[in-house]
Each structure stands twice: as C-alpha cells, then as structure tokens.
C-alpha cells in the first residue's frame, strides 16, 4: 500500500514539473556593469525590456567605466559598459573578442559663473585650450573677448574647475582638447582622469557645478544632461566648420551623423571635433561591451534580441532622458554587427 502511494505521489510530482516547464520559459538572468553616465537610460531600457519579455532579467551595476572594463576582462559579468572605447592593449588582454555597441550620445558643455555676465559666451577651441592649459588667466583676455563683442568681461583671474573623480565626462573633454591642441595632446593627453595643469577638482557633476556656483569667475565642464536639468548657463563652442554651436540633442546627433560614413567596423570611434556646420564638437558615444562569443545559447539570444530592441524601439526613450539618439546610419551598421555575436 505504501509503495503505491509513493508511486502516485512521484507521478503527480513529475506531471506538475512537466506542465510548469511548458508554461513558462526558463528565466534568463543577465548581469552587466560599467559606466555611470548612461545609467538612467540603461535602467529604463532594462526595465521596459523586462516588461516586454518577463523571462529576461537584466541587472546593471553602475560601477564606473573602468570597473566595467575590468569586470569584462575577468568575465565576472555578461556585458560591460564604458564611456570611452577599450584600448587595443585592453582588448588584447581579453580571452574572447569584445564588441563595442554605441547606445546613445552624450556631450560636455562649458559652464561658468562670471558676475555681471548673463549672456551666453562664445568660445573658440583656442580659448578653451588656453584656459584649461593655464595660459589664458584673465576673463578679458583678447582670445576670449574677440568672439564676445558687446559683453563686458571682467579683468578677473579665471578659476578652472574640473572633475576630481575619474569619469567619462573627463574622457570626452580631454579627448576634445587633445584634438584641438597639440600641446594638450603631448603634455596632458586623454584619460578618465589626467594630470591637470591648473584648477580645482570637485567630485561629480554636482560637485563641479556646486563649486562653480560658489566661486566667482570660475569655469568648468559638466555633462549636457546635467546642465539642461539644472538650468546652468553654458557656452557656444566654435566647431571645425567655423560655426558657433550650442549643445543640444539635435546638434550632438548631428555630430554623430557627420562621422557615420567614416565609422570603423568595431565602432571604436571618437566623434569630438567632427566636420559639419551644425555639429556640436564635444560629444561622444557611450558603448555597451558585448563578448563576441557567448556559450550559453539562451543568454546569447536574449542579448541579441535586446540589442535589436535597443537600437529601434529603445531609442525612443533617449531624448526624454536628455541623451542624443543614434543617427540612422549608425543604427543600420550596428544591426549588421549583431550577427557577429556567436
């Protein structure tokens, strides 16, 4: 009798487990880590995507681009994210090929606090490089004043404020400076933190803007998103075509579109100082880092389908969160590249 009950029980149990297996697909859990700058849009995407595909759960830790790259290299995460492309050296350290997928666009703007000056300033690349190299030390320097007729700039010392924490924002800013000034390129270079020739360091966008608000005659750089949300004044910058352009979502997308034709196949490209009349010159992609080989088939398909969704439907969320959309040419090229994930 007891044997029989046992058999029935086992049968029932087996039946339940089979029917359960049929009803819901196996849950797929994907972990990523990296850049903090795109975190708001990434968490929005992963959330929306989870609503569409309840079986796919993507977790993202915004630990910083550097940490994201390191975790990718030791394969503790399924994907990484970075504000600067990985270097050749870093790619050589990886045990699987790593693919870069641009997701959205961001930009840096120069914000300032000059008592008595309410107008938007115009900056030439020479003026920006001069200020950040410590060669232009007064606000009424001819290099600044020449492009701002009608604005009474004070005879006051410029206080430069930069980021003290390593950040993608600094990477974009120093990348731009390296392109427009050979002296900057040779002496300082581009990195998430550099050896600043002048100025004070403050932590985070909020630290930089806080210190600028409090320090008369100061200038610094923050992310465009941050400047828009906090209504900070920021300068127009003269681009490579010679036009003074104000940063907004349209002008940074234009910057990306201008470089789309010369886009390398691995998408590791800097789009600062692009050609084009309408392009804002201090913009950049931010990238997802995806391994070229994913052995777990369920994970692989989930990541590929997410990328396709991100490049099409997902882009609609970008501008609401103040990120620049990818230009269509880049989207097309990325769609082709998805097939490289195997």
């Amino acid at each position: 009798m007891r044997e029989l009950t046992k058999k029935i029980f086992c049968f029932a149990l087996a039946l339940i487990s089979i029917s359960c297996g049929e009803q819901a697909a196996k849950p797929v859990l994907i972990n990523g880590a990296g850049a903090t700058f795109p975190y708001p849009i990434y968490s929005k995407w992963f959330d929306e995507y989870h609503k569409l595909h309840p079986e796919i759960q993507i977790n993202y830790a915004s630990v910083g681009s550097g940490a994201g790259i390191r975790q990718m290299l030791v394969s503790t995460v399924d994907f990484g994210a970075s504000d600067g492309p990985m270097t050749d050296e870093q790619l050589a350290q990886a045990n699987v090929p790593i693919l870069h997928f641009p997701t959205v666009l961001g930009a840096d703007v120069a914000t300032y606090n000059i008592p008595g000056v309410q107008q938007e300033l115009n900056f030439t690349p020479e003026a920006i490089a001069g200020i950040f190299l410590g060669k232009i030390t007064k606000w009424n320097d001819p290099l600044i004043a020449r492009e701002n007729p009608g604005i009474k700039l004070p005879d006051a010392g410029i206080v430069v404020i930069h980021r003290s924490d390593g950040s993608g924002t600094t990477y974009i800013w120093t990348d731009y400076l390296s392109k427009i000034s050979s002296e900057w390129k040779e002496k300082i270079g581009k990195e998430t933190s550099v050896n600043w020739p002048v100025g004070l360091g403050a932590k985070g966008n909020e630290g930089v803007s806080g210190l600028i608000k409090q320090t008369p005659n100061s200038i610094g750089y923050v992310e465009l998103v941050y400047a828009i949300q906090n209504h900070l004044p920021y300068a127009r910058v003269r681009n490579a075509a010679g036009a003074f352009v104000k940063a907004d979502l349209a002008t940074i997308s234009t910057a990306a579109a201008e470089t789309a034709t010369s886009m390398p196949d691995d998408f590791r490209v800097s789009i600062t100082n692009p050609p084009g009349q309408e392009a804002y010159p201090v913009a950049s992609f931010t990238w997802l880092l995806i391994p070229g080989k994913i052995t777990d088939a369920a994970k692989r398909e989930a990541i590929k389908s997410f990328l396709r969704w991100m490049l099409t439907e997902g882009q609609k969320f970008a501008e609401d969160l103040a990120y620049g959309k990818l230009p269509p040419d880049v989207v097309e090229k990325e769609m082709e590249a998805i097939s490289m994930i195997q």
């Binding site: 630990v63 550097g66 940490a67 790259i69 870093q90 390593g166 933190s193």
Partner: peptide
C-alpha cells in the same frame, strides 16, 4: 575614492 572606480 576619486580615482579607483574609473582607473583603467
């Protein structure tokens, strides 16, 4: 604290 997370 400032540089560790982004040091590559």
């Amino acid at each position: 604290a400032n540089e560790f997370t982004e040091a590559t």
